[in-house]
Design a protein around this nucleic acid. Sequence first.
DNA 1: CACCAGGCAAGTA
DNA 2: TACTTGCATGGT
Length: 225
Amino acid sequence: MSDSIDVTLGNIYAKMHKHFGPQNRWLAETPLEMMIGAILGQNSSWVNVDKALASLREAKLLEVEKILTTPLDRLADYLRPAGYYNIKAQRLRNLCQCINDLTGGNVEKFLAFDQVELREILVSVKGIGPETADSILLYAAGQPVFIVDSYTFRIFYRHQLLADSVTYYELQELFMDNLSHDVQTFHEYHALLVLVGKKFCRKSHPLCSKCPLQEYAGWVPSVEE
DNA sequence: CACCAGGCAAGTA
DNA sequence: TACTTGCATGGT
């Protein structure tokens, strides 16, 4: 077909990268801070997560031991700006308890577990689901896993690039089967999807004609053998 | 004012 | 298994 366009996940990435340029995403100062940020970021804006992280840092609570020993209601108080502060305080506790149990509180050792094993450990922690686990794997452990989030679903669904019934793992598999497993690329791809989602693919809005991915709407991404 | 933000677990049928 | 609901502050 002379008028067909080549729709691959690589081309979609290239299109976004050309439109927005490279992304310098926020990165926490330490791996533990990354993990905490991943939990605080659940269904919350990062502006507010940063405030919570800053107050934790100010109070010198960014340590496994401190999070385990600080009274839950006091810990929760620092988390207020991030929302869901009671639940998130407990979730931070659960993660730190897990790190303590497995490696005596040694974060480096904890993150050095084999990728598959670490993922199983993470999702077994109450309060850590698929996306939070993958965020920790990519950003804190430096493992090449693709993070699927609500923006990823919404952007691809709205452009009719996938059925609404696909699961987290099916979509993750699609990306990981068709992209090179490169940490930096996965960082960038995810960041660009978040950007496109915020700018051109918001909830309760129709397909946006200004979206750089608009020309791909209705095509089925070709898959490598 | 209404709506939304880089989810997750628990409850219901 | 497949929905629905609670959690909560702060920005647009």
